[in-house]
Amino acid sequence: MQLRFVASLVGTLAVALSPHVAQAQAGDTLAKAKSSGIIVLGVRESSGALSYHLGGGQYAGFHVEICQRIAEDIEKAAGRKVEVRYVPVSSESRMGDLTSGKIDLSCGSATNTTARQQEVGFLNTTFVEEARIAVKANSGIRSITQLHGKTLVTTRGTTTVQHLRRHERGAGIKFKELYGKDHADSFRQLASGKADAFLMDRSILAGNIATAANPADFTIVDEPLSLEPIAIMIRKDDAGLRKLGNETIARLISSGEMARLWDKWFMQPIPPANRSVGLPLSEATKAVWADPNDKPMEQYRRR
C-alpha cells in the first residue's frame, strides 16, 4: 500500500510539473532544438534586403542569412539534425509570436529600444539604421519641414512617426497618418499617391524602391530622423541563445563574413529583380561592429 501510494504521488507530481517543464523549455531555444529537432525563424515578407519573400515559401536577406548561420550553430550545439522552419511575421505580431513560442528568433528589421527590452531580448546590433522619408522624385519634398499638411504612411507596429514628432525640425508639423499592414503595403500607398511620403528605415525604403517598376520615380530625403540599432530579437531570458547568437555574430564580424554579407545584400544585384539596393556600409555600423553591444536606441545620439 505504501509503495503504491508513493508511486501514485510521484506520478501525480510529474503530471503537475510537466506543463511548467514544457514552458521552461519553450523559453530555452537550445533545449527545445535538442529535444524537438526544430528551430523556427520569424521572417518578414517585405523588409527590404533584410528579410523578404522570394516565393514558394523561400525567404532571403541579410538578417535571414545571419539567422541561418545561428541555426547552423544551434544544430552543432544540439548534436543532432535540426530542421529550420520559416514563419512570416508582421511588425505587430513579431513580439507576441516570439514570447508565445510560435517563433524562436525574429529575423526582420527590429529596433532595439528600452521599451521593447521589457518584453523581449536582443542579440548584439548587426547594423545601425537611419529612419528617413521616401517620396516621389517629382514631389518637390526635400526636407522634413515640407511635410506640413501632407499625408504620411508608415507600417503598423513600428516607431517611425514617433521619431518624426520628437525630431526638432518636426515640431509643429501637422500631417495625416496612414498605416500599412506591412512595408510593401506602405510603399504601395506612396506609389499610388494615397500618401505623400513613406516614413521607415532607410534600408527598407531603399529595398522597396529597388524592386519598384520604375525606381527612378522615387527618392529618399537626405535628412535622417534618428539613429537606430537594428538587431535580431529573441526571448527575453533565453541566456543560452543569447550567448550562442552573439558568438555567431562576433565570428561573422571578425572573419570578414559580415562585411561580405552586407556587400551581397545591399551592394550587389539581388533576386528577384536582380537590382542593387545601393546602400553602402555606414560609419555608425562599422563602429558597432568594432565594439559589439546590445545598447538600445535611447543610448544613441540623435541628429
Rank of each mutant, 00 (worst) to 15 (best):
A49N: 01
H167Y: 08
V221I: 13
D237G: 03
K76L: 14
V40A: 01
N124I: 04
T113S: 15
L17V: 14
V15Y: 07
E298R: 05
K176W: 05
N293A: 14
H167K: 09
Y52W: 05
L252G: 06
A197V: 07
L244N: 02
S51C: 00
A197W: 07
P269G: 10
S203C: 09
G140H: 06
T248L: 06
I204V: 15
R301P: 02
V10S: 07
L279C: 00
R142E: 15
A171R: 13
K295P: 00
D97P: 04
P271A: 12
K102L: 14
L252E: 10
N214W: 05
L178N: 04
K136T: 10
K243M: 06
E72L: 13
D263V: 06
A77G: 05
K194F: 10
E45W: 00
S276W: 05
Q189F: 14
E129L: 08
G207L: 04
E119I: 08
V6N: 01
V128R: 08
P292H: 09
I209L: 10
S100A: 14
A33F: 04
Q2E: 14
V128Y: 10
E228F: 02
M297Q: 15
K264D: 10
D182W: 08
H20L: 15
S254R: 15
E257K: 13
S106V: 10
G108Q: 08
E65I: 05
T113E: 07
I133N: 01
F122V: 00
A24T: 09
G108H: 01
K174Q: 14
A259D: 05
C67E: 08
R80Y: 04
P292D: 01
Y86M: 12
R156D: 08
N208S: 13
S254W: 05
A71F: 08
L205Y: 10
V87H: 06
E75R: 15
E129G: 12
T99L: 11
A171N: 11
V87S: 04
G42Q: 02
V64S: 10
A191G: 06
L105N: 03
A33P: 00
L98Y: 02
A49D: 00
S226E: 13
R251Y: 03
N124M: 04
Q58R: 15
G42Y: 00
I141S: 11
A24M: 11
Q118E: 13
R166L: 09
L178S: 06
G108Y: 00
L13K: 01
V6P: 01
L244E: 02
R166D: 08
K264V: 03
G108D: 03
R260P: 02
I249M: 04
V82S: 01
R166P: 00
S93N: 04
S47N: 04
E228H: 04
T151V: 15
P280V: 12
W289C: 09
Q25T: 13
A22N: 12
G180R: 03
I232F: 01
S47K: 00
K32Q: 12
G55K: 01
L50D: 13
T211D: 13
G108W: 02
I204W: 04
I249G: 01
T248C: 07
E83Q: 14
I234S: 02
A231I: 06
A7V: 12
N274H: 15
K236G: 07
K174H: 13
L178V: 06
M297D: 07
R4V: 12
E92T: 10
A131Q: 11
N208R: 11
M267N: 15
P272F: 11
T211A: 12
K174E: 13
V161H: 03
Q268F: 03
K81Q: 14
K181E: 14
G121N: 03
C67F: 05
